[in-house]
Simulated assay, not measured.
Amino acid sequence: MNKDDKIYIAGHRGMVGSAIWRRLEAEGYTNLIGRTSRELDLTNQEAVETFFAENRPDYVFLAAAKVGGIKANNDYPAEFIHQNLAIQTNVIHNAWKFGTTKLAFLGSSCIYPRDCPQPIKEESLLTGPLEPTNQPYAIAKIAGIEMCKSYRRQYGFDAISLMPTNLYGPGDNFDLETSHVLPALIRKFHEAKERGDPEVEIWGTGTPRREFLHVDDLADASLHLMRRYSALEHINVGVGTDISICELAEQILDVVGYQGELRFNTEKPDGTPLKLLDVSRLRDFGWAAGITLDNGISDTYQGYQLRSKGDGSRLQPDSSNQ
């Protein structure tokens, strides 16, 4: 990519898109394009076609998505499959149609079977049943991978698919109804400390293990792969190590400074028991994560404290994430 190439970041106000935008600016790219959801509804086929016809970006980072944790996926399965399928279909098709040089589609590690061998290799896709709690979202992301592969095979369109592990960091969603586990625990422990609560409830048994990637590392990897990776198959993006939810809670508890007890509600779902990505292919392309979990949690908590001092709505996801 040249520094003055026109680069469209779909979802530039969301956690992933804003991190990619920051990284591109830091690298000296000067012709970045972003639209909020009010300016451009990516689920609207006609609106997206008009946008691409008028702007004709050279490169596209497709980071826009309808995202959420276990509760959100359970409560709103129709929105998760409909909105993500519509966004992906409109952006990928029109990027090809109006001459985009290359597109990077950002997916999720939830595409893999619930009980596949660990660490998860790219070849594990479609080898078994998905985790039921996020199946609609996962199916949408699998469709995005297949769409990129199909447009590459039929039209020669240089579309790549990046599958990141669990993300956290600046711009995260701290709304307890829709957030993922790490930001939810930060908020729960902070508010419990402020109120002096003797204990905090955590969903599930605490035994599932998860891998966590700082969103600034994902942005760095996305730019690295946009420059260097061009293949039919998707590629995992992660750190290559995992931690149990119980261990994660204790680590966040230390950062926040909460002195109470943890109470695991085993009547609530755990989700996938193990989910660690094999990142050997990513490392073969010369990239490895650089932000430790300790430093990343501290950074995220500092950002939460700044946001929580203002209007509580700032703890919710930006609507332009989609």
Rank of each mutant, 00 (worst) to 15 (best):
T241N: 02
V200W: 13
A104E: 01
I291F: 05
Q302G: 10
D294T: 15
E250Q: 11
I70D: 08
E211V: 09
R195T: 02
K102T: 13
D216H: 09
T36I: 03
F52N: 05
T30D: 00
H214P: 03
G17C: 13
L24R: 03
E201I: 02
D158F: 03
R228G: 14
G296N: 01
N73T: 01
E250D: 11
S179V: 14
I297A: 05
K3D: 01
K121Y: 09
Y76K: 03
E247A: 15
P269D: 12
I245N: 10
L32R: 01
G99P: 07
H190D: 15
A221P: 07
N74P: 04
L62Q: 08
R263T: 04
N265V: 11
P129N: 10
F98Q: 12
I243K: 01
S280D: 14
I92V: 14
R23Y: 08
K97H: 13
P317H: 08
P198D: 13
P183A: 08
K188W: 05
R56V: 04
N321C: 14
E250W: 12
E199M: 08
Q83C: 12
I120S: 00
G206A: 08
S280R: 14
I20H: 14
R13Q: 13
R314E: 02
R153V: 08
S179H: 08
K275S: 15
S150E: 05
L223V: 13
L42H: 04
G204Q: 00
R22W: 00
A26C: 04
P136G: 13
G286D: 10
H180G: 13
F52D: 03
V181N: 01
Q83T: 11
S308V: 11
A159N: 00
Q302Y: 07
V48E: 01
R283W: 02
C148S: 09
I145L: 14
K97R: 15
S230G: 14
A65L: 11
V215T: 10
K188M: 12
F52E: 00
A249G: 13
I33Q: 03
G286V: 14
Q251C: 13
A19G: 09
L167N: 04
Y59Q: 06
A104D: 07
E177W: 10
A65E: 01
L130Y: 08
L182R: 02
Q45N: 10
V279T: 06
P129A: 14
D318Q: 06
H190R: 13
L62A: 02
I139K: 12
G17R: 03
R114N: 12
T300E: 01
K71A: 15
R153A: 15
C246R: 07
I70T: 09
P57I: 01
R227M: 14
R227Y: 00
K66Y: 13
I145Q: 12
T205P: 13
N321Y: 15
D299S: 05
L167V: 05
G171M: 05
R114Y: 06
G312D: 11
